[in-house]
Each structure stands twice: as structure tokens, then as C-alpha cells.
């Protein structure tokens, strides 16, 4: 059975595209045939994050308008043979796609793939509505900042109004040292305000910048953020995976020896 998941946020710059790329990688690495669809028409980014920008011939709008077959527009990942990208159009605007067309596209993709990840544009306009219309479930990405959480709350309200069945929260860019010092809201603070079940917590990690520079994902690599995305992928598949402790509290080891 396949699942269509929209990755959305409201506010820009919180790490939606990074999350989409890494969760796609995590699911594909777990032997699930996965496609990531960049629905941010006019401002495509997912191809760059995945390092696939030079392979684009056709895009989402070409498929929807019938200029090419779906298979011609799908780009296979550099490393994982069961991971694909359907890039957005760069030279068109959001009005090029209607929600009904998106639903139809998702239905077609369901026949081929286990997981379909829709990377939504920031904002609450047409592009967001398109991305949400075809999805079974939503992952709302936020950072522990006032403006990002406020926008996440708006988005959750809109998703509930659209009767989205499953809504989960992914908290990105957590800094355990700042949480410990009382200078950043903790995972529990964010959960308390948004009241939506958590699916992932990703620490702020310079490896993300480095991997994005290279057009690679961190998932599968030996680093905290890579581990966090792998765990989130497993939770998406229904596994019960404990959350890493990013509360910033020092371990017993620290308390005993590193005072």
C-alpha cells in the first residue's frame, strides 16, 4: 500500500526541502520505492539539494500538461536505485497546476511507488493547496523559533480544516546547548504549544550545510542529523523508535567527570 506524504511548514527556511531530501533517502535506503515531488513551481530547490540539477529534462508541469510521459520526467538518484525525483518547473508560476491535476498525478504515482513525498512551497497560497490536496498525511516542519512555530500553528489549523487524516511534527535545527542554557525552546515546549504528535527531532548540524554544498544528503552518514532523519524515516514506516535525547541535559558521565 502506498502513502502520499506532504512536507510543509508555512514559514520558509526551516528545512522543508532538506527534510524531504533526507526522508526520501531514509525511506529508499529502507528498501521502499520512493519518489520526491518538488511542488514549488517557479522556485525549485529539491533537485539542487539532491545534486540532480544537471539531469533535468522534463518537469512536473510537463507531465501535467502532457508534454512528456511520467517516466521521462522522473530522475533517478545518484546512489539509491529506488529513489526518484520529479522536479518542479522553474519558468512557470503556481497557477500552472490545479489541485485536481495534483490528485490525479498522485494517483498515477501510487501505482509505481511505496512512498510519494511532496515538498510543498512555503506560504499558504495556491502552491500549498496543490501540495496538500493529493496527500494522505502531512509532516509539518518547524524550528524552535517564535515565528516558525506560529506559522506551523496556522498550517496545522489549515490542514485540520482540510480534514488531513494524520498530521505530525518534525522539529528541526535544535541546539541542545542553547536549550540547556534556557535560550531556546525545548522539544517539549514546542509540543505543548502545537499539540501535534512528534515524528522527528533533528539537531542543528553543520554537516547539513556541507552535504548540501556537495549535493548529497546526510542520511546514512555517521552524524547526528543523519541518524535523526533515518529514525524519522523508520517512524514514518510505522516503527516505534525512541527519540534521541536533545534536551541538552548532561549525561551521568558528563556530570561525574566533566564538571
Amino acid at each position: 500500500m502506498s502513502e502520499v506524504i506532504v512536507i510543509t511548514s508555512g514559514k520558509g527556511g526551516v528545512g522543508k526541502t532538506t527534510a524531504a531530501a533526507n526522508l526520501g533517502t531514509a525511506l529508499a535506503a529502507a528498501d521502499k520505492k520512493t519518489v520526491m515531488v518538488d511542488t514549488d513551481i517557479g522556485l525549485r530547490n529539491l533537485d539542487v539539494v539532491m545534486g540532480l540539477e544537471n539531469r533535468i529534462v522534463y518537469n512536473l508541469v510537463d507531465v501535467i500538461e502532457g508534454n512528456c510521459r511520467l517516466k521521462q520526467a522522473l530522475i533517478r538518484d545518484k546512489r539509491l536505485s529506488n529513489l526518484y525525483l520529479l522536479p518542479a518547473a522553474q519558468t512557470r508560476d503556481k497557477s500552472a497546476v490545479e489541485p485536481e491535476q495534483m490528485i490525479k498525478l498522485c494517483e498515477t504515482l501510487r501505482k509505481e511507488f511505496d512512498y510519494i513525498l511532496l515538498d510543498s512551497p512555503a506560504g499558504i497560497e495556491q502552491g500549498f493547496k496543490n501540495a496538500v490536496s493529493g496527500a494522505d498525511r502531512a509532516i509539518v516542519v518547524t524550528t524552535p523559533e517564535v515565528s516558525a512555530i506560529r506559522d506551523a500553528d496556522r498550517i496545522i489549523g489549515l490542514l485540520e480544516a482540510a480534514e488531513m487524516q494524520k498530521i505530525h511534527l518534525l522539529i528541526n535545527k535544535i541546539r541542545p546547548d542553547m536549550v540547556r542554557n534556557g535560550d531556546m525552546m525545548s522539544v517539549e515546549d514546542v509540543e505543548e504549544i502545537l499539540a501535534v504528535p512528534l515524528i522527528g527531532v533533528v539537531p542543528d548540524d553543520e554537516n547539513i550545510v556541507i552535504s548540501t554544498n556537495r549535493g548529497e544528503t546526510v542520511t546514512g552518514k555517521e552524524c547526528l542529523s543523519g541518524q535523526a532523519f533515518s529514525n524519522t524515516g523508520r517512524r514514518i514506516m510505522g516503527e516505534d523508535v525512541p527519540f534521541c535525547d536533545l534536551s541538552g541535559k548532561k549525561s551521568i558521565w558528563h556530570r561525574l567527570f566533566k564538571k
Binding site: V146, R150, D183, M185, D189
Partner: peptide, 20 residues
């Protein structure tokens, strides 16, 4: 006051007016 507490108070107020 620690900025985390300030953020949380401001956010609660914002979310309340948004939801209302």
C-alpha cells in the same frame, strides 16, 4: 529573564490571537 521563557510567553499570546 531567560529568552526561552520570553519566547514561550510571546508565542502563547500569538497563537491564542491567531486561533481566535
Amino acid at each position: 529573564k531567560k529568552s526561552c521563557g520570553i519566547a514561550k510567553d510571546r508565542l502563547k499570546q500569538l497563537v491564542l490571537t491567531d486561533r481566535m
